[in-house]
Design a protein around this nucleic acid. Sequence first.
DNA 1: GCGCGTTGTTACCGACTGTTACCGGACGTT
DNA 2: AACGTCCGGTAACAGTCGGTAACAACGCGC
Lengths: 235, 235
Amino acid sequence: MKLADTVAPIRPATAAFDVDALAPHLPTTRRRLRTGQHLYRAGQAFHALYFVHAGFLRTSLVADDGREQVTGFPMRGDLVGCDAIGAGAHIGDAIALDTCEIVELAYPAVLDACRGVPALHGMLAEAMGAELRRDRARLLALATLSAEQRVAWFLRGLARRQRALGYSAHHLCLRMSRVDIGNYLALKHETVTRALSHLDADGVIAVERREVRIPCVERLDAAAGAGAAVASRAA
Amino acid sequence: MKLADTVAPIRPATAAFDVDALAPHLPTTRRRLRTGQHLYRAGQAFHALYFVHAGFLRTSLVADDGREQVTGFPMRGDLVGCDAIGAGAHIGDAIALDTCEIVELAYPAVLDACRGVPALHGMLAEAMGAELRRDRARLLALATLSAEQRVAWFLRGLARRQRALGYSAHHLCLRMSRVDIGNYLALKHETVTRALSHLDADGVIAVERREVRIPCVERLDAAAGAGAAVASRAA
DNA sequence: GCGCGTTGTTACCGACTGTTACCGGACGTT
DNA sequence: AACGTCCGGTAACAGTCGGTAACAACGCGC
């Protein structure tokens, strides 16, 4: 049975990591997570990468003193856990924001599987390269953008990913709390609220709790300011 | 001829990437860069990774509108250019801060070389994983630390890497300008100067232009605050 | 020597964001 | 229904950092 037969296959342009092509060469297991369940926790032994087949997660880096930095919100088509390769243990948590379908790829077995198939050869390295580019685009955004621009940049990124998966880019459902968004963007949750309210007042978006409507994507691009430029290339 | 015969070999604990073990299986070329010369520029076709055998560089991410974000200061033992894997072209500049000895590793040939030798199998993935962890530790530092703590955290990281390479951790020579440090830490150069002056006034360090003495590493750790905790694990 | 550009330092002011506080609503538990 | 908790929104206040400016130190070419 193919991995992606319950829903439409993920288009190559969307997924850096083609788990369907890999599956025949690697024994994979599927896991189902419910909201709030952990995929892994900081300190747990690292023995597998995880491919998100459906659902949304939140990944974080956890410091020794308990401080937490949200590193991303993986969704369908994303590969999770790469930052533990070479470390032996996971350096942060991964928690489900809603019901998730996860494909578990044993490490280092996944290396052998890629090795055996020329077409899959650089796939893992390319997926990790893409993750490096995303991290650095975010660093640039955090370093150069104001609070309001960062929030617009964040919404813009979510909308683009939704659109890449075939959904509408004009309506978002934020699975994460204001605190999570703030942690991701190096802001406090009050500031996130302020920025969302202001963008709403300006007519750029329409916010109601965790529902966001984006009438005009171009206006959101403009609100994200100059930082928008690099995201399109690095995404 | 071995690659590392002009100076002492790099200890395995220091270098995530063991270029000496790889060399017999891959035709490598050496390049020499002088201060100010570019190793690559944003937009150039990506066809090789670069291993720093000696010298210091500055890598950056360049946005479409020309804004630049410094992403790191690679030194002896570091692998440069990984963030271009899968992108086709380099996403930023790499410039020499002094005379550099660079080993050029053709891509994707380096994948084949690793594939042929079991011992080198996950080496590239592990080096990239380490880079991901460094990026995320930096994100945590930028998100949680004050300006002065960030500067202390930066100096502390430099000192640790110097010590790992066998040099003294009590004396640093900053190859990069205040502007570069500020860009790396998401601060303005005046703020970097202020932080350095304040740390000097407190007796934590002694600064004179680009020379920094660190009489007591523990005091620098303390000045870096809580953010110091994660760096040791993620570095 | 001299002028000039670059880099580094310090001071002052103001804007942005963090801090604190309080309130309301949604949700689950007893 | 009553209660507590979590999440979200708003407001007043305070602190940090950026913006600007002026100046000093150094390197460079003439």
